[in-house]
Amino acid sequence: MCVDCGCGKPPGISGPQETASISLLQNLHQQNQDLAAHNREHFSSAGTLVLNLMSSPGAGKTALLEATLRTLQKHYRCAVLEGDLETELDAQRIRALDIPVVQITTGSACHLDAQLVHNALHGMDLAEIDLLFIENVGNLVCPASFDLGQHLNVVLLSVTEGDDKPAKYPVMFRTADLLVISKLDLLPHVGDFRIDRAENFLRALASPAPIISLSARSGAGLDEWLAWLHAHKAQSPVDEARVVENGGAG
């Protein structure tokens, strides 16, 4: 008889090899998503707007940050989280601008996740930061699958990579709240990159994300990018959170 409830099932009859099938329907990203939501609460309650910069290696994330921060630090208290497999080279470039930076060296991991970002937050005082840029590990695949708690995703595509990348890496480019086409100064030298083709590939992913073409080196297009940042900073994350809580009623 069952040892717990006396249901009448005699012991030993089914033997040690009885099997059970258990339906779970659990999201494998759940743990990361919960942590990301936790990070986002921290950011929003501190009034810190957080942007996650993603691209392939060498697309110009650090160069864009350098050009951006030189201007932006006159208006906002900025900080940077640098994700890299190895070295502090990027962090040193940002530090040279007198911007607080925390380096996350992932060793061999191909992406940042919400836990790594959460750990790094312990080295930052969010109350003192208006804008936090997270420079993700250069990679068009893995970072796309891991929410960090950011408010906005910025995906960079340099003209030297080819205009077909949104079609080849749809998971990444679908996440973009803004597509930055970088290294615009090199466009005359790479005859086969067409901005309209890149845009068509992005729209085919049902993405309404705006596209800004710029060159961190020449400064072309930087004003449009800075205006985009100012506009999003003007919508305080705290206010946005309240709107969501009120069911979008205002």
């Binding site: 069952c2 040892v3 099932k9 005699p10 012991p11 030993g12 009859i13 089914s14 033997g15 040690p16 090899q17 009885e18 099997t19 059970a20 099938s21 258990i22 339906s23 779970l24 329907l25 659990q26 999201n27 494998l28």
Partner: peptide, 15 residues
Amino acid sequence: ILESVELTLDELSAI
């Protein structure tokens, strides 16, 4: 999504 798992249970659990 983790849809389901199949398990081999030991004797105590099985009853």
